[in-house]
Design a protein around this nucleic acid. Structure first.
Lengths: 148, 148
DNA sequence: TTTTTTACTTGCAAATTACAACTATTAATT
DNA sequence: AATTAATAGTTGTAATTTGCAAGTAAAAAA
């Protein structure tokens, strides 16, 4: 476990697995991508389809169809923009908000559990490190433009 | 950016994007799952199908077909075990090894670039933190058994 | 006014997925 | 030793997901 990629790979795969497991809320059986879509709509302010698709680095056609599914499931609402009739503004329905919040809570509960295996100093160091890493990644020229 | 999930989400999504982009090597156009399969075969010692499928938390039938594809692409070799005729031992071909190594190099190069935006102290702290996190996650009871 | 660009949607066709049901082999039970 | 159960892996089939190409409609640029 010397090389950087290995430790990152392990970390992100584990988080990814969690992410994958945590997607069934009540009656709603959500896929991983769908949970990510809900997450982004919740995060962003009145986003358009393009905006969300871009942050998720998804093909707009695939995204369009996923949104159709989520609208059918009554988790997402599509409102035509008044300023630009081409764009659709995305928002969460009450249920969508509920699902997103529930997933968020369970993810955070899991992370709290993980952090409970550390002492206070370690906890703070680790959180600070992740933030540092995120900053460094956003400065990086190599990859992954979408994410802000 | 207060909540733990948010910072982890951002980190893992960025790493995931990188992972996704870095999968074309020479003539080989590899999908993300396929790259993960190559990674695990490379990592583990003479693994069986089951073993790799389990670490990747993949359905064995899906895995079986992915392996068929990789064998056709001449990246993976399947050798029947002599001790148990039911099991197939997986290994990388020379090309498979080349692809895996190339991906590994480019991922590490990217990570080096990311770490170049930090000073030596930060670098060490961050690496140590990720390792700490991995340990804590492996202790966790909540999730993600497969990964060792 | 015409042309170009942008936002999004549909028609495909390929790839990915997983459940059920299968074969073949090994381990456990009687 | 013979039967039964469990394990490793493969296919049938059907649903879902994906992305390119080509489309519509609206806005911006020429």
């Amino acid at each position: 476990m010397e090389n950087k990629r290995d430790i990152f790979h392990l970390l992100t795969r584990r988080f990814g697995l969690l992410d994958k497991n945590c997607c069934s809320v009540g009656n709603f059986d959500i896929s991983l991508v769908q949970s990510h879509i809900l997450y982004e709509i919740d995060k962003q302010f009145e986003p358009s389809m393009q905006q969300v698709a871009e942050t998720l680095a998804m093909d707009i056609t695939t995204f369009s169809r996923q949104i159709q599914t989520l609208v059918k499931m009554d988790l997402v609402k599509k409102t035509p923009s008044t300023q630009d009739k081409r764009v659709s503004i995305l928002s969460l329905t009450a249920e969508g908000k509920f699902v997103a919040t529930t997933i968020d809570l369970s993810m955070n509960a899991y992370l709290d559990e993980v952090f409970s295996h550390m002492n206070e100093f370690e906890r703070e160091t680790v959180i600070r490190s992740i933030k540092l890493l995120n900053e460094a990644m956003s400065k990086s020229s190599v990859c992954c433009k979408p994410l802000y």
